[in-house]
Computed example of a mutant assay.
Amino acid sequence: MGATTGDRYECVVAGADILGEVPMWCERTRLLWWVDVRRAALQSYDPATGRHTARRVAEGMLIGSMALRRNGGFLLATDSGFYTYDPDLAEPPRPLFDPEPDHPGNRLNDGRCDRRGRFWVGSMVDAERIPGGRLYCLEADLRCRTMLEGIVVPNSIAWSPDDRTMYFADTHRQLIWAFDYDADDGVLSRQRVFQDWSHQKGRPDGAAIDADGCLWNAMVATGQLVRHTPDGRVDRIIQLPVSNPTCPAFGGDGLDLMFVTSHSQRLGDQLAREPLAGGLFVVETGCQGLPEPRFAG
């Protein structure tokens, strides 16, 4: 394993994902699941055996994020809307609906479930960096509410352990926001800047909350994992051997391992200097995470 700033990391799957994203630990299967957005590949890693599997879900589909479902299988958020999918069945994804049928250039991107079983997901214009995206909240009965508009690249959806604060980032603007969160009604209020990275190189991508209520962010372009305390202070930085980590997630039987996805797209000549780009990493942080919520629909 490689040592960095007192922490330990290992590349456990050198799969060279084009755009690895949204890792999540499933306590039922005891597997770490994630996607390669550009290949529409649903992947799993078994830390007990080291086994890696990858399934091509649908040709031509872009899977921006997903959620575990309480009734089994996954909810997929794609470039053509929401689908359900069970990798144990020899069936294609089943379409639910598209929240943006009049915006064919948009796709759904980062998404996570809150602890009441709602799925929160952001959309974005895939080909351009313009503020044409939205943040949606999908209820268990499939009612879909628009919560924010004018988003460029949605990321970093996470909640504090007490469910009173929700975090959300626009990667392009290099801003992480915090909101007061009403978990009973799924309502946001009192938006404020939690962290402003606009004067630095790094851009906040995916995020995870640890049991102490600290927000871990994967920082695209700097290769860093950054831990923020609940008051917004940076108290730890872990340097990885790739420029573009994309999202962290706690996993393992004790939720004490941090898994981190990464991407290899648009690196050009730099790819030769980063042979592990697009790999899946596990980082020993000494912290513990929280169970991954499941979609109630």
Rank of each mutant, 00 (worst) to 15 (best):
L225N: 08
A208R: 07
G213Q: 10
Q224F: 05
P230M: 10
A208Y: 06
H228P: 04
I238V: 15
T229A: 13
D235W: 10
V234E: 07
R236E: 08
T229E: 12
A208T: 13
I237F: 09
A207G: 01
I237V: 15
V234G: 00
D235T: 12
A207W: 05
P230R: 10
I238S: 01
V234T: 13
M219D: 09
D231M: 07
D235I: 09
I237C: 11
V226S: 00
P230W: 09
I209W: 04
M219K: 13
I237Y: 07
G213W: 09
I237Q: 13
V220Y: 15
A211V: 15
L215E: 01
R236Q: 12
M219H: 12
T222N: 03
R233M: 11
G213K: 12
A221L: 15
A218W: 11
I238P: 05
R227K: 01
W216P: 09
V226D: 00
I209R: 08
G223H: 06
A218N: 12
I237R: 13
Q224L: 10
H228T: 05
G232A: 04
G232N: 03
H228V: 04
H228R: 08
C214K: 10
A207D: 00
I237A: 04
A207P: 07
A218D: 11
V220N: 14
I238C: 06
R233I: 02
A211N: 14
D235Y: 05
W216L: 07
N217E: 10
R236W: 10
G232L: 03
V220Q: 14
A218L: 12
G223D: 05
D212V: 07
D212Y: 08
T222F: 01
I209C: 09
I209V: 12
G206M: 12
A211M: 12
A208M: 08
V226Q: 01
L225Q: 07
M219C: 13
I238W: 01
P230D: 09
R227E: 00
T229V: 09
N217Q: 13
V226T: 04
M219S: 14
T222W: 00
R227Y: 00
G223P: 01
